[in-house]
């Protein structure tokens, strides 16, 4: 007689898997990676390769030899962390920078909390911020290496648009003067930025990734939109009050890794809130803190710190902003 299989309902399951979701995020990063390979050539490939491989190997080694758990590197989450980290480094970084960053990201930020799903802070961002405070010179050297399609830019002009603006403002120049001197244009920023991290070269490629993620229902648009919206509104207020001293919102949005952070870093499942309300508050918090750091802080950009600060509030947000309950309030008619 046939032994029937018995299990509680439901008896069918959706096709989504952790692995599939992570793979979708990697696919969404592909346009940015390709653009950066176009601009930075071998350097971009090297960083992405070292980052990915190191993260995967470190996670495997920790699971296998230290905590003696079943290795779960097949779910692509470590590979994604490595790739994200690599895409957030200056293009000319040496290989050991991304190696150290990966060690910190996986070893400290992820595995010491208990692995996938347990970490409080976004591992790739922890790795990046660790590098930023430990190796400030390398991490702010925006010289671009030569690629097959483009010659390298020498270090004197290799600064990011943001740091140029910040420096110019501190010298007492007005925004118009800075723009005139440096020949910034939005088209340039949208398709090939003047300087910046590997993955941030083209805002267009990042937005393509966002569209892919939303269409595939990997993420909901709440977080990226609330970050971008709040940055635009908040920095717009500053700009309207004093256009002389503050860059306009479009410039703010297109520079300094805001898109990268809003689309790929802040939306990390593990370190973002669960409910829609929580997501919006989280996004607005990131937006406001970013603008404050940019305009008043020591660093030219601020989204990395803003996301990490808001990561810390996620458990609270989850606790206080519950989804709308069906049966809580009686609304008749």
């Amino acid at each position: 007689m046939k032994k029937l299989l018995v299990s509680p309902a439901p008896h069918i399951h959706g096709k989504e898997s952790t692995r599939g979701l992570m793979r979708d995020v990697i696919i969404a990063l592909a346009p940015s990676l390709l653009v950066s390979i176009y601009f930075f050539g071998f350097s971009a490939i090297k960083l992405a390769f070292v980052g990915t491989i190191t993260c995967v190997l470190v996670e495997y080694a920790i699971q296998k030899y230290i905590i003696k758990a079943k290795p779960s590197v097949k779910d692509y989450s470590a590979a994604l962390t490595g790739l994200l980290l690599a895409l957030n480094l200056p293009p000319n970084s040496p290989w050991w920078i991304v190696f150290i960053g990966s060690l910190v990201a996986i070893g400290i930020a992820k595995m010491s909390f208990g692995g996938l799903g347990q970490n409080l802070f976004n591992p790739a961002l922890v790795g990046r911020v660790f590098l930023l405070v430990s190796f400030p010179v390398i991490m702010t050297d925006w010289t671009t290496p030569a690629s097959w399609f483009r010659e390298g830019i020498d270090s004197s002009t290799g600064a990011t648009a943001l740091s140029i603006v910040k420096e110019g403002l501190s010298k007492g120049m007005s925004m118009d003067e800075i723009f005139a001197q440096n020949d910034f244009s939005y088209a340039q920023m949208l398709f090939s930025k003047i300087g910046g991290s590997v993955g941030e070269v083209s805002a267009f490629a990042l937005l393509l990734g966002l569209v892919y993620l939303i269409v595939r229902k990997v993420i909901r648009p709440h977080i990226p939109l609330s970050i971008l919206g709040s940055v635009a509104i908040f920095s717009g207020i500053f700009w309207l009050i004093s256009p002389e001293n503050y860059p306009d919102p479009v410039f703010t949005l297109l520079t300094g890794g805001i898109l990268m952070g809003a689309i790929f870093m802040a939306t990390d499942y593990v370190t973002s809130p669960m409910s829609s309300k929580g997501m919006v508050i989280y996004g607005v918090g990131i937006g406001i803190i970013t603008v404050l750091i940019r305009f008043y802080g020591a660093y030219p950009e601020g989204i990395s710190f803003a996301i990490l600060i808001m990561n810390a509030t996620v458990p609270l947000l989850n606790n206080y902003f519950k989804p709308e309950r069906f049966g809580k309030e009686v609304k008749n008619g």
Partner: peptide, 21 residues
């Protein structure tokens, strides 16, 4: 499928028709 770690994706919260977590 084999049970994995919760990645806190919030999909269960999204689909719950009673607004639970």
């Amino acid at each position: 499928g084999v049970e994995g770690n919760c990645i806190r994706c919030g999909k269960c919260v999204d689909v719950c028709p009673m607004g639970l977590e």
